[in-house]
Simulated assay, not measured.
Amino acid sequence: MGQHFLLSPDCRTLTVMDLARITEAKAYAWFKQARWFKTEGKPYCPDCGTLRCYGMTRSRFKCSDGACKKVFTVTSGTAFAFRKLSFKKMLIAIWFAANSVKGKAALQLSREIGVQFKTAWVLLMKLREVVAARRETMRIDSEVEIDGKYIGGHVRKKNKAEDRVDRRLKENRSPDRLCALAIRGRAPGSPTFTRVIQNEDGEAAWAAVRDHVSRDVTVYADEHSSYDDLLGLNRMKRVNHSEAYATKEGYNTNLVESFFSRLERSYVGIHHRFSMKYLDWYVADVAWREDFRGRANGFQTKTLLGLALNRPTSRFLCGYWQGNCPPDLIWEKPKKDDPEPS
């Protein structure tokens, strides 16, 4: 048997020692290459697109077009707009975020790079929002597995045994508990689609498969009634987990259960709890890590940096500590008047 990828030197092409030795100018060059990769790091105007730009003081550029004359920087209009950290410190923070296999805690990052908790928290949340945005155009063309996992809503048990209730019963569950719906492709390189919903129900599963899974592939699911209606969309193969984890024919949902195992370890071992308000971004972040776990950490860092520098400024996290705040990120059934996605 060959050596596991994570045990091989191929997985660690970029170390924190490598980043500690780079200069601020080198880190700035990383940002320029990631922002303007189409022109090999040469800046162009974000408004009119012209390459006729010249440098100014404080790492600024100005468009030479007479009708535009926009002044911009390498982070203008991106997820890192209005940044105050140095480029080197931001690059090291992105490396720590990408290199953590089950997620990164803001308190730990604040100690590692020497910033306030608020700064570390917003930076990590911006990266989570960035990787969550990839779901907008996600389409899975291989066999998929679908399942849901309930997260959060912990209720402390009563002290006396006679006062305790069975939390497995629906009427005794916490109202704050939410369900993470996941669709995972079986083919190598297939993405993992996630969505946070109020309850594991058929309408949410139907909408997710309809919008993000090819009609030509087979869907594997358990016997939960939420997936019964998917027979009208795709071929279905089911496994009854009350009898076995895999059928005699080999039907199983082990891949999506593996993802939920990583999500559980992230919840319990890294963050200890997720904010239910931002649960959707946390789950999408774990899905991104699951999809890129077979790539070197240098590739992961550059990919995450590139995604952030080619994503518009967040309407929710820019000015977060000044009162701006995202809405609830729980999927809701579209109204009848809303157009269906093409």
Results as ranks from 00 to 15, higher is better:
55 G>V: 10
56 M>Q: 15
57 T>S: 09
60 R>D: 02
62 K>Q: 15
62 K>W: 05
63 C>P: 11
66 G>N: 12
67 A>W: 11
68 C>Y: 03
69 K>Y: 12
70 K>G: 06
71 V>E: 06
71 V>T: 15
74 V>W: 00
74 V>R: 00
74 V>A: 03
76 S>E: 02
77 G>T: 04
78 T>L: 04
79 A>C: 10
82 F>Y: 15
83 R>M: 09
87 F>D: 03
90 M>T: 05
91 L>R: 02
91 L>G: 03
93 A>S: 04
94 I>W: 03
95 W>N: 00
98 A>E: 08
99 N>Q: 12
100 S>V: 08
101 V>I: 12
102 K>I: 09
104 K>L: 14
106 A>C: 08
107 L>V: 15
107 L>W: 07
109 L>N: 00
109 L>I: 09
110 S>H: 04
111 R>M: 08
112 E>F: 12
115 V>M: 05
118 K>T: 10
121 W>N: 08
122 V>D: 11
123 L>W: 05
123 L>H: 04
125 M>N: 10
126 K>Y: 09
126 K>W: 06
129 E>Y: 01
130 V>R: 01
131 V>G: 00
131 V>R: 00
133 A>S: 13
134 R>A: 05
134 R>N: 01
137 T>V: 13
138 M>Y: 06
140 I>Y: 00
140 I>L: 13
142 S>M: 03
143 E>L: 07
146 I>D: 07
149 K>I: 06
